[in-house]
Amino acid sequence: MDGHATDDDGLTEAVQESGAVELLLIRHGESEGNVAATEAHLAGAEVIDVPARDADVNLSGVGREQATALGNALARIAEEFRPDAVVSSPYARALQTAQTAVDAAGWSVKVQVDERLRDRELGILDRLTRLGVETRYPEEAERRSWLGKLYYRPPGGESWADVALRIRSVLDELNNLGTGHRVMLVCHDAVIMLFRYVIEGMSEQELLDLAAGTSILNASITKYVRPASEGPWKLESFNVADHLAEQGVAVTEHGGDANVRPR
């Protein structure tokens, strides 16, 4: 995509000189995969008819509108409080959201890429609905139910705990830098949930309670602050999408499997 750096260590490059006092976590706009997954669920299908591999799935028409509306909202931030580092998951839907939002906001900052922000990898369960998993891989469905969302790792894929390790690596960079940096990360719903898990020191039960009752809205904003640039982060706002409704853009909710607790 035009306008972003293509190096693999975007976060390191973007913030190597100073630490973070503010962290914005943005979920990508609605994707064609989100729409296809909802349609498959409603139709009782086993397979989600996505047009491309997960990394290449684009924003839907609504998702592009959401990304623009997000940028319009970000444009209201006073210049001295704007993020000076914008780092995205390399997946197309996140990159498209990040670049569209930055362009709409009129910011000159480059969108960097960091593969640690990518979505959870599903391995052999990729493209399958819950019904598809239960029908085609009943032993995996049973194992997932037994272990719960945090620790279940599908063959060839990742558990949420695996994703949390990536997030700890990202936060370590922010926690061991200087002062004054503001960072915006554009990523995925599970990644944002797990940022909360890591930052707030949640227990497994607290994380799964949150995940069972909350869907991260497309193009929503979650904000953490720590004015002293060190020590614990404070959650200032979570999963806010008012900027979409204010601009007449659809607020969409495409969550994952709500059956997250171990049996």
Rank of each mutant, 00 (worst) to 15 (best):
residue 1 M to H: 07
residue 1 M to T: 12
residue 8 D to E: 13
residue 8 D to N: 12
residue 14 A to E: 07
residue 14 A to P: 07
residue 16 Q to V: 15
residue 16 Q to N: 13
residue 20 A to Q: 01
residue 21 V to Y: 00
residue 21 V to I: 11
residue 24 L to N: 09
residue 26 I to S: 01
residue 29 G to Y: 03
residue 30 E to V: 05
residue 32 E to M: 10
residue 34 N to H: 08
residue 35 V to Q: 04
residue 35 V to M: 03
residue 38 T to G: 10
residue 39 E to N: 00
residue 50 V to Y: 01
residue 51 P to I: 07
residue 51 P to L: 07
residue 54 D to L: 02
residue 56 D to E: 15
residue 58 N to P: 15
residue 59 L to R: 10
residue 60 S to M: 09
residue 62 V to R: 06
residue 66 Q to N: 04
residue 67 A to F: 00
residue 69 A to H: 01
residue 69 A to W: 00
residue 73 A to W: 00
residue 74 L to F: 13
residue 75 A to R: 15
residue 77 I to A: 02
residue 85 A to T: 03
residue 86 V to C: 04
residue 87 V to C: 06
residue 92 A to P: 00
residue 93 R to I: 13
residue 95 L to G: 05
residue 97 T to V: 04
residue 99 Q to M: 13
residue 100 T to G: 03
residue 103 D to S: 10
residue 103 D to Y: 01
residue 106 G to N: 08
residue 109 V to A: 14
residue 109 V to M: 05
residue 110 K to D: 13
residue 111 V to R: 09
residue 111 V to D: 10
residue 112 Q to P: 00
residue 113 V to M: 03
residue 114 D to G: 08
residue 115 E to H: 11
residue 115 E to L: 01
residue 121 E to A: 12
residue 122 L to V: 09
residue 123 G to Y: 08
residue 124 I to H: 01
residue 126 D to F: 03
residue 126 D to E: 15
residue 126 D to Y: 04
residue 133 V to D: 03
residue 138 P to G: 11
residue 138 P to M: 09
residue 141 A to C: 10
residue 144 R to D: 12
residue 145 S to N: 11
residue 146 W to G: 05
residue 150 L to K: 06
residue 152 Y to M: 13
residue 156 G to I: 08
residue 160 W to R: 12
residue 164 A to E: 00
residue 168 R to I: 05
residue 168 R to M: 10
residue 169 S to G: 15
residue 170 V to C: 11
residue 172 D to K: 13
residue 176 N to R: 13
residue 176 N to Q: 10
residue 180 G to H: 06
residue 181 H to V: 02
residue 187 C to R: 00
residue 189 D to N: 14
residue 189 D to H: 10
residue 193 M to Y: 08
residue 198 V to I: 12
residue 198 V to R: 06
residue 202 M to V: 08
residue 203 S to I: 01
residue 205 Q to Y: 09
residue 210 L to K: 05
residue 212 A to L: 01
residue 213 G to Y: 05
residue 219 A to M: 10
residue 220 S to F: 09
residue 220 S to I: 04
residue 222 T to N: 06
residue 225 V to K: 14
residue 225 V to T: 15
residue 225 V to P: 03
residue 225 V to Y: 01
residue 225 V to E: 15
residue 228 A to P: 00
residue 228 A to N: 14
residue 229 S to R: 01
residue 233 W to R: 12
residue 238 F to M: 10
residue 238 F to H: 08
residue 240 V to Q: 13
residue 241 A to R: 07
residue 248 G to S: 08
residue 248 G to F: 03
residue 249 V to R: 05
residue 250 A to I: 07
residue 251 V to E: 13
residue 255 G to P: 03
residue 257 D to A: 02
residue 259 N to T: 09
residue 261 R to S: 04
